[in-house]
Computed example of a mutant assay.
Amino acid sequence: MERTLFERLGGREGISAIVDTTVNNHMENPAVNPRFLPLKDQPERLRIIKDHTIDFFSMGSGGPANYTGMDMVTAHTGMNISPGEYYHVMDDIMLALDSNGIDEESKKDVLAVLWSIKGMIVSK
């Protein structure tokens, strides 16, 4: 039986590490850090965003989770995220997957998920 993407990403613990690494990457990436650096002064809001992201990716990758956040269009409406910013975010996620030892096949699966939600996030 094939393992789910959730399992291949290390379950909730692995996804949590990937999200933490990704957020750190965003904070260091000058192309997107203006959107993320203010969250350093809002630790409660940052924790909520991370928890929603963990739940979203856990549920979307075949794991047990109860995502209670907004849908992607609602969550990103008014943010006017450019395609370039989205690509930088994708790069940061891929770097986080590398940093956390995720295999190539799983990285391809994550990339497919990211492409599938792009239209719900960019320029909303």
Rank of each mutant, 00 (worst) to 15 (best):
P34E: 07
A17Y: 01
V122S: 00
S99T: 08
E13A: 15
L5N: 05
G14W: 06
T74A: 12
G11T: 14
A65M: 01
M70C: 03
E105S: 09
L46G: 08
D71T: 02
T77E: 04
D41L: 11
G62K: 08
S106Y: 00
H52S: 03
F57N: 07
S99A: 15
V113I: 14
T74D: 05
P30M: 08
I18W: 01
M59Y: 04
R45S: 10
S99F: 06
N100I: 09
M120H: 11
L95Y: 06
G60S: 14
M94N: 06
V89R: 08
S116V: 01
I81L: 13
I49S: 01
T77D: 01
G63I: 10
N33C: 12
M79W: 07
I54A: 10
S82P: 05
I18S: 02
V19H: 06
N24T: 13
S82T: 15
V19L: 07
M120C: 05
E7Y: 10
N80H: 12
R35V: 10
P83G: 09
R47C: 01
H26E: 09
D71N: 09
T77V: 08
N29K: 07
L114D: 00
D55S: 15
E105K: 13
P30T: 10
D20T: 10
P30W: 09
I102V: 15
V113P: 00
L46M: 14
E28K: 10
L114C: 03
R45C: 07
E85S: 10
D109L: 12
I54S: 12
N25P: 02
S123F: 04
M27W: 03
P83E: 12
E105Q: 13
M70Q: 14
L95T: 14
I54V: 15
K118Y: 07
E104A: 14
M70L: 13
T4Y: 03
N24H: 10
N66P: 06
S61Q: 03
M70H: 15
G119Y: 01
D55R: 09
E85M: 12
